[in-house]
Design a protein around this nucleic acid. Sequence first.
DNA 1: TCATGTGAAGATTTTCACAGCG
DNA 2: CGCTGTGAAAATCTTCACATGA
Lengths: 210, 210
Amino acid sequence: MKQDHIPRATIQRLAVYLQELEHLQRDGLEVIASEPLARACEVNASQIRKDLTYFGEFGVRGVGYNVSGLINALAKALSIDKQWNCILVGVGNLGKALLSHREFSEHRFTVVSIFDFDPFRIGQMVMGLEVMDGNRIKEVVAGRDVRIGIISSPAERAQRAAANLVEAGVKGILNYSPARITVPGDVVVEYLDVMHYFYSMAFTLSRRNR
Amino acid sequence: MKQDHIPRATIQRLAVYLQELEHLQRDGLEVIASEPLARACEVNASQIRKDLTYFGEFGVRGVGYNVSGLINALAKALSIDKQWNCILVGVGNLGKALLSHREFSEHRFTVVSIFDFDPFRIGQMVMGLEVMDGNRIKEVVAGRDVRIGIISSPAERAQRAAANLVEAGVKGILNYSPARITVPGDVVVEYLDVMHYFYSMAFTLSRRNR
DNA sequence: TCATGTGAAGATTTTCACAGCG
DNA sequence: CGCTGTGAAAATCTTCACATGA
């Protein structure tokens, strides 16, 4: 890795490149240049090349990139080449949908325990996992190297979920609830409110024909 | 509206401000300055003020912003003050989760029809709606002013879903499937692959302690 | 020769700093 | 007086253009 700071936008594009490369690989392609890959990903070709330089040199001049080689390089760059243990708080519709998401387990993100605060849900089985009491996260996951927490509970319980996740040693939280949460400075929070994308779509569509 | 171009990042932040303002309103707050609102939203205060100037002047100098007034202004700026009819293709776990999302109907985004390509799903009732044949989108929604389509089908069916949505007159597509889709230039696509956020979280956490 | 890798230029976005106004 | 609204400066990100090297 050559630079200290890597733009957040670069990381998000890396995920797109990876997705498209996996798709091309399934189609049997072995080598691709930045130009056609850029078209497939709907970005500028030098953008791809620049993004890659943050992590090293992966291409061959005059030829392009080896597809599977680049896939491996990107997976390593993103640190998704090893397993990430996750826990989920809030086993409602959204939580269940995330749990059963096919891509999820295929990509080495493993949900090891699930939690809820609703007494009627605690004890139920969902996708082979028993729903545990959301107030007992720390003791349940102790010693299991869980670093990512997913909050899919209602807004009212998001802060409580966050506090219990932090207490259990989680360092990153993907927050699907429509509420801001407060956590210590060493914990990363990503906000993923479903509605926000609908808002921006509504805005974009309204602007289009004006 | 004073400017022609509005940064995409501004729109995403507007959604955050709106969410936080609604929260503050429920707590009974009537007036707020940019500084405390900025702290709550974890952004810079002048960022908020600058974002708002794209749409007009909403504050009172020396005082701050009227909370409910600003909520209305933001809702109008984002064009979410009127109803948006949506249709959904792919009634799997994710599709069902989106359909039953509480915030969804509360915010004037109404799913008027749902579709799937799986013969076993067609005819089923989900959230009070009958699952219709994904190849018959156009005839089913004809004349219903549907402008937003949601793709929550597997990657293999995403392109077919997109084509049928476009044919039905949809102008914006929220694509939750892990596949890029090709659509005419006047159709907006927003990619929302669930895995991408896990990737960027894995990346961020790996970088943190280095 | 051809496509990568990369400084430098350009475009965009964020932050500063303060004039302007209630 | 205090906070907004806003030009101008700073920071950041993207694109260009071409030297470089397989």
